[in-house]
Design a protein around this nucleic acid. Structure first.
Lengths: 245, 245
DNA sequence: TAGTGGTCTAGACCACCGG
DNA sequence: CGGTGGTCTAGACCACTAA
């Protein structure tokens, strides 16, 4: 199989990324079938007039995404069977929009409060000092989906209003105000719904909820958010891709 | 802060990995405090007599692990607050051993059976063709922990016996027989325990179980395993790290 | 043994950030 | 503006795999 890849060296998009995107598209549309071996790196580099390292980076990008596998002495092949998209640092809001659904948000709480112990520890502030506490009910046209509870450093309160939060995702608002998220540490579990949760989510008391406890860090390593989310397990599951390296 | 890093150029360990390991250790033992800025890449490269690219790879490795964050024009810093270990392609068995617990395994089923539809689709075999079906109850000294259900291609049946499975992890056995796992696509959800599950796991009927549905691929892209695991949510949660790149 | 990916070098130019 | 990381080149040698 011969791929036709083209490059725009004047574009602001890195060359390795242009390549990766085109190979990914070829896999998605079936041009590159599962099990197909890519041409070797030297050949690809020569054909595209790129250095081998740039080709390698493009391939590495797709290996990290779980679309390709490499084996020394053998080659690079397309993974059999489609891989689910990997977990990324995106918000539920963005995910719902991308899936063509219409997210709705009801702000249940937006207040400066003394930080509960776990939140204080995660954010690196003294226990009991004031932090911004947010509680939201996220739903779609099909009904409620999750209770989202967030605690943020006090200084981020400035640009977060109920109106903003009901029209946009939290991460989107943070990004728009120059807060860039880089790393999150997350723990996923399950609990039975409490009476209060069951009412909000339209489930029976004791119904299983998928819970995510998360601390998110910004681009200079500071903690930006501590979150405790509860999802209706009947309507939501978490997809991820693991790669061995 | 001056780090003392040393290299062994005759060792079979890649240089970038030697560097990464030492920086990671320095973070772990507190030599590099959260928020500390690393020296810039040019300087590090010069001091260690390495090319900048090698240094970059070492740093990139730790960024991927969630230990460092980079920002153009600013520098590289240690993330505040400890990050949980990222989800890797390891087995529950290995994880338990590493955590100092003693895993026990009871094989409930080990048989060649017609593949159920989802398993057939995941493994890429015709529906109803024979596959190896395994069902195990995994526990620790503290009681049962999870029901592990696996379906594997028929040809892997050769070296999997009840005795082997009760003494070792499945992934461990696969690896020992030349089957190398590379990528897994996983879906995490929650369900109420059925009567049968509640009996095996010593929970009440309807208690929340954390479920993982997983397809794992080997190093030439072939599907090696389809799994459906149910964990007691009261005793197990799934930890992961997300990195934006 | 031939072919593949894995690592490494010594340069270069650019984009972004902060003062 | 100076300093940082981001991208890229054109080579080189090595380790592993399969025939």
């Amino acid at each position: 199989m011969k791929l036709s890849l083209d490059l725009d060296r004047s574009a602001p998009v890195p060359l390795y990324f242009q390549i990766a995107r085109q190979i990914e598209a070829a896999i998605a549309d079936g041009t590159l079938q599962p099990g197909t071996r890519l041409e070797n790196e030297l050949l690809l580099a020569e054909q595209l007039n790129l250095s081998r390292l740039t080709i390698r980076r493009a391939i590495q990008h797709l290996v990290d995404k779980g679309l390709l596998v490499r084996k020394r002495g053998v080659g690079t092949q397309v993974v059999h069977g489609q891989v689910k998209r990997a977990a990324k640092l995106t918000s539920l809001y963005d995910d719902l929009v991308k899936a063509g659904r219409t997210p709705s948000t009801k702000v249940l709480k937006l207040a400066l409060e003394p930080a509960p112990p776990e939140a204080a520890a995660a954010l690196g502030v003294p226990e009991g000092s004031n932090v911004l506490a947010i509680e939201r009910l996220r739903g779609t046209q099909d009904g409620p989906l999750a209770i989202l509870r967030n605690w943020l450093p006090e200084e981020l309160a400035a640009f977060l209003t109920t109106e903003q939060l009901e029209q946009h995702g939290l991460y989107q608002l943070l990004r728009a105000n120059g807060v860039h998220l880089r790393v999150a540490s997350q723990q996923i579990g399950a609990t039975p719904a409490t009476t209060a949760e069951s009412r909000l989510l339209d489930e029976n008391r004791g119904a299983p909820l998928l819970t995510m406890t998360r601390t998110t860090f910004g681009d200079v390593g500071q903690a930006v958010e501590y979150a405790f989310d509860s999802y209706r397990a009947s309507r939501y599951s978490y997809e991820t891709t693991l790669v061995d390296r």
